[in-house]
Write a protein that binds this DNA or RNA. Structure first.
Length: 647
RNA sequence: GCCUUUGUAGCUCAGGGGUAGAGCACUUCCUUGGUAAGGAAGAGGUCCCGGGUUCAAUUCCCGGCAAAGGCUCCA
């Protein structure tokens, strides 16, 4: 018997008899073998120690592969469980999966309560266990034996999990003194886990059900090198420093008031200026690509949402009706702009020659988010979308998508989001019953999205079953400066609303046809977008967007008058500038300007007044030397032009 | 919405059954200083809101509201 293994580079290796993925790794290099955490065999991630099928494709997974990391973290969860059992006998275990950054284990400590004071002990025990080079031993067990084992252990959680599993597919993994119900896979042994940190502790309901018992969830993370853990912890600190809620306060961008209400942000002058600038940027870009601005009221008659279907779906769970003196009448705060735009479309008959029609509106919408969900600016109850609805013919979907993609990429470029990918959400491949709209249109639209993304050279991945019931979509995910993922722009095809609102156009055949509607919002919501932007830039906004671009710092009172003249000149040239007129030393003024992240500081004293120059200092960079105010204006213009080059 | 924790000056926070403090910010005065914090004095609080216990509550208890973390949800 021979085992033929196809490696990711396409090469095929043949082995005599049965081999494991680890054997293959060893045959390639000892170094590789040391680093292998698990193996992807014919697309399925498995233990590296399992025997390979006779013919297979094989990827050896290491710390550099997301699946390799997940394997190590999942194994780490088992080791943490062993540590917990050793430290706190009688602990019962729920589930302990790997997550995006590390892993957690949901446990029931019984009467005992654990706090972050106990983390050090858990970490110490964990390291002690991991250093023993424990191996993970996989055994298949019958359902009866599995139940017997956990009945003996008195762990009702594992028993409940076993209940849901088919006999014959149950496996246990054992390392050291700990045996867990687990599908696997696991790393070969624990010697590669060199650093571990318990990150936090939280309550979590068993199986996410609030009616059931609350378990203690311990979040933790492990790394193959202490240095990597240290870097990760530094990154977490940095993320805390960049928290938009903290920076929003420090930079005077926005605030909240209990009197106004939870989830209803108040924009301060600097934050409002930021919003305005983003809005103008988008309006400009949209005008160039054929959009028309429309405006609609903040409330609408109940009938509008009955027609759109939102009333039935969200009516009871959202803000309640607004009453009028007429007891039969009900109005609602608008949760969406699209129904209004549909009515604008319907305001007169449309010809195929009119399409596509693109209505844009920076519409503020209100949704009653659950109180526990509110979070800074990223989850609010009133927010403004850079919304637009495109009404087009089915054959125009692809081109419209391409144009919207251009708009989204323009935003990313202007704001330095250089790392992004796009998710194409299509129908469930098997179950198509939950989708509305004709098969023909779906096929056309799905293909249009795939083609448009490909033609634009987007880095995409397809998710089946992620489409909305009313149409497929394309979502943009950006990675910020700290490597965190955010979903920003979104483009969605909608067959539902045109149907419900009975939208029509007259075709060249003189017959009535139904248009396709596309929802799109490059920013998504301004609130959320600004939150992401604050965290991405750490409050140091691109020059074109900065609420204040320059601050003039007179060395002493004697030069304040001259500083005002210079500032007025800069303002005339559309530079946002002000004077620090405080009776403070220059060092202090510079420090405060640095902390407010104003891009340029213009120091001005006796020498500058005489020569009619300013001494320019760039935020976080330092002294740039002297120049006259007009040269400074050019510097700003050049910098902005560089940023916007090619847009 | 659910669980846990928190709520004291504009901000960050200390304190504690007997009417409240620090640092920064603010005001005034001194200082006129050349690239990340000059000095002094002063002003500033419904201790989140409502109820209860108590001779006395900002402090203890209960209920609300808000925030943080997590769970669930998200047009």
């Amino acid at each position: 018997m021979k085992t033929n293994v196809t490696l990711p580079d396409g090469s095929v290796r043949s082995y005599d008899g049965a081999v494991t993925a680890m054997d293959v790794a060893k045959s390639i290099s000892e170094g590789l073998a040391r680093n292998v955490l698990s193996a992807k065999v014919n697309g399925e991630v498995r233990d590296a120690s399992r025997t390979l099928p006779e013919d297979c494709t094989l990827s050896l997974l290491t710390w550099n592969d997301p699946e390799g990391k997940a394997t190590m973290w999942h194994s780490s969860a088992h080791v943490m469980a062993e540590a917990l059992e050793a430290l706190y006998p009688g602990t019962k275990f729920g589930i302990g999966p790997a997550i995006e950054n590390g892993f957690y284990y949901d446990v029931d400590f019984g009467e005992r309560s654990i706090s972050d004071a106990d983390f050090a002990a858990i970490e110490a025990k964990f390291k002690e266990l991991a250093s023993k080079k424990l191996t993970f031993e996989r055994t298949a067990v019958s359902k009866t034996d599995a139940i017997a084992y956990f009945t003996e252990k008195d762990d009702e959680y594992k028993l409940e999990l076993i209940e849901g599993l088919p006999d014959g597919e149950i496996t246990f993994y054992r390392q050291g003194n700990f045996t867990d119900l687990c599908r696997g896979p696991h790393i070969p042994d624990t010697s590669g886990i060199k650093a571990m940190k318990v990150l936090s502790l939280a309550g979590a309901y068993w199986r996410g059900d609030e009616k059931r018992k609350q378990l203690t969830r311990l979040y933790a993370i492990t790394f193959p090198k202490q240095k990597e853990l240290d870097e990760y912890l530094v990154m977490l600190e940095e993320a805390k420093k960049r928290d938009h809620r903290k920076l929003g306060k420090e930079l005077d961008l926005f605030t909240f008031s209990e009197k106004v209400g939870a989830g209803l942000p108040l924009w301060l002058p600097k934050g409002a200026a930021l919003r305005e600038r983003l809005i103008n940027f988008m309006k400009n870009a949209q005008e160039k690509s054929g959009y028309e601005q429309v405006a609609t009221p903040h409330i609408a008659h109940k009938n509008l949402y009955v027609t759109s279907g939102h009333y039935e779906k969200y009516g009871k769970d959202s803000f309640q009706p607004i009453r009028t003196p007429d007891p039969t009448e009900e109005f609602f705060l608008k949760p969406m702009n699209c129904p209004h735009h549909c009515e604008i479309y319907k305001s007169r008959p449309r010809s195929y020659k009119d399409l596509p029609i693109r209505y844009a509106e920076f519409g503020t919408v209100y949704r009653y988010e659950q109180s526990g969900e509110l979070h800074g600016l990223t989850r609010v109850r009133g927010f403004t979308q850079d919304d637009a609805h495109l009404f087009c013919r089915p054959d125009q979907v692809k081109e419209e998508f391409m144009k919207v993609i251009d708009l989204v990429l323009l935003v990313f470029k202007a704001l330095n989001f250089n790392n992004y990918e796009a998710q194409i959400s299509l129908r469930d491949q098997l179950d198509r019953s939950k989708y509305i709209g004709s098969e023909e249109n779906w096929v056309k639209a799905e293909q249009a999205i795939i083609d448009a993304a490909a033609e634009k050279g987007l880095n995409t991945f397809i998710e089946y079953g992620e489409a909305a019931f009313y149409g497929p979509k394309l979502d943009f995910m950006v990675k910020d400066a700290l490597g965190r993922k955010w979903q920003l722009g979104t483009i969605q095809v909608d067959y539902n609303l045109p149907e419900r609102f009975e939208l029509e156009y007259v075709g060249s055949d003189n017959a009535k046809h139904r248009p396709v509607m596309i929802h799109r919002a490059p920013f998504g919501s301004l609130e959320r977008f600004i939150a992401v932007l604050i965290e991405h830039t750490a409050g140091k906004f691109p020059l074109w967007l900065a609420p204040e671009q320059a601050i003039v710092l007179p060395i002493s009172d004697k030069y304040v008058e001259h500083a005002r003249v210079v500032t007025a000149l800069l303002k005339e040239h559309d530079i946002r500038a002000s004077v620090d007129e405080r009776n403070e030393k220059i060092g202090r003024k510079i420090r405060d300007a640095e902390l407010s992240k104003i891009p340029f500081m213009l120091v001005l004293g006796e020498k500058e007044v005489e020569a009619n120059t300013v001494s320019v200092r760039e935020q976080a960079q330092g002294d740039m030397g002297t120049m006259n105010p007009l040269q400074f204006k050019e510097l700003v213009a050049t910098r902005i032009a560089q940023q916007m080059a090619g847009l």
